[in-house]
Design a protein around this nucleic acid. Structure first.
Lengths: 209, 209
DNA sequence: TCATATTATGAACCACCATTCTTAAAATGG
DNA sequence: CCATTTTAAGAATGGTGGTTCATAATATGA
């Protein structure tokens, strides 16, 4: 049952088109170097039209990030709060993340570049929202690690430290994949990531004799 | 023996003062939001004077990064190419890095924000230089891991993957430390980082014996 | 000290956008 | 079809900030 009028539906469609165009341009040039004009041209709208949907460039930018992060975070959250061994949940989340980034290269370029600008982002009203969501995600992850420790699956490191370490590794693999000139499957790195994170780099002393 | 004239020495001193001021302002506001005017005011020079030392804002920015990275990379490089067990070298480098960042909070804010802007940075002539240095560093690290694998100290993961994972963890701990409101010792996290990286998160099933 | 050369200065210039606003076009509906 | 309302457009506006340059300040050295 469609409760929206044709007008409303069209309006929404136009909004998404603008967001899609913005994503492309922001990913290519970063926030400060993309102009509203260019986004408008890419989306095939007039410049003024953008302001019918978003009250400023910042608003457009953060809305973009906010809606996309929601898309992945809801999925990840569902998996993390499931009833299952911690390692299994972490593994699945890793696959989610990698697969999502593989399908949303542009988005991650924007997302990752947010990392650098925290001073500015965090001051900003919309930026704060995005940042809080990242924090909540890390804490959720830490909670799962805590459970893994409790069940004896994991060593008793500080769970928040584990979460940071895990995200650090994942992030750096995604980053590497992004700047790599010839594309390869990001998901194929999952085994490696898990291997290093779970069993560590050091060769276990195999005291044979 | 001083081969520089007083003039030359003064000129050099002024240059450093400008760089120091720039570091402070860039760290606080990021590249696009700091103005040459503000850097000049901070350094107590006229705006035009900056252009006697640096041909543009970009030049100033990348010179800053370039010279600081040299400072740490030479130290790190010396340690990495030393004759010693791989794990020992990695451990020392980790302490270097953390200690350096602890003394150069501002610099790392700039450095990390470079991560995000790779499209732009890499196109840029000066940016390319900085990027190449990062790549060289990672490869050096990978080489050490390779040696560690050869000597049986480390498991035979792909050494480049190990290097990325290691830097990912370190980076994420530094990042966390940066945004944390009340300061704590970064160096104190070294044990944790090494623990996670070397032995992994999973509780050991005491493989064989 | 004074004439000259050198250097520093910051006001002015100019290009660049985010945003607004007038105008033109398209819906609407009688 | 026409009158009226709604919406889209992109030119015009205003503010900003990197860079330059004419001038002031300072140094030099005779």
């Amino acid at each position: 049952m469609d409760v929206m009028s044709r007008k409303e539906r069209e309006r929404l469609a136009h909004r998404s088109e603008i967001l899609r165009a913005a994503e492309k341009v922001f990913a290519l040039k970063g926030f400060f170097q993309t102009t509203m004009n260019e986004i408008a041209r890419t989306a095939e709208f007039g410049t003024g039209t953008l302001y019918k949907f978003f009250k400023s460039k910042e608003d457009l930018y953060f809305t973009l990030i906010d809606e996309k992060t929601d898309e992945i975070y809801t999925k990840v959250q569902a998996e993390l709060t499931r009833e299952a061994p911690a390692i299994e949940r972490i593994t699945n989340v890793l696959f989610f993340e990698l697969e999502f980034m593989e399908r949303n290269r542009d988005f991650f370029k924007i997302y990752t570049s947010e990392g650098g600008r925290f001073e500015w982002s965090i001051q900003n009203e919309c930026g704060k929202k995005v940042h809080e969501k990242m924090v909540r995600y890390i804490h959720l992850l830490a909670q799962v690690f805590q459970q893994g420790i409790d069940t004896g699956e994991l060593k008793s490191f500080n769970p928040l430290d584990l979460a940071h370490a895990f995200e650090g590794i994942v992030h750096s693999f995604i980053f590497e994949w992004l700047i790599h000139p010839e594309p390869y499957s990001l998901v194929s790195k999952a085994e490696t990531i898990l291997g290093i994170f779970l069993t560590g780099a050091k060769e276990g002393k195999e005291e044979i004799g």
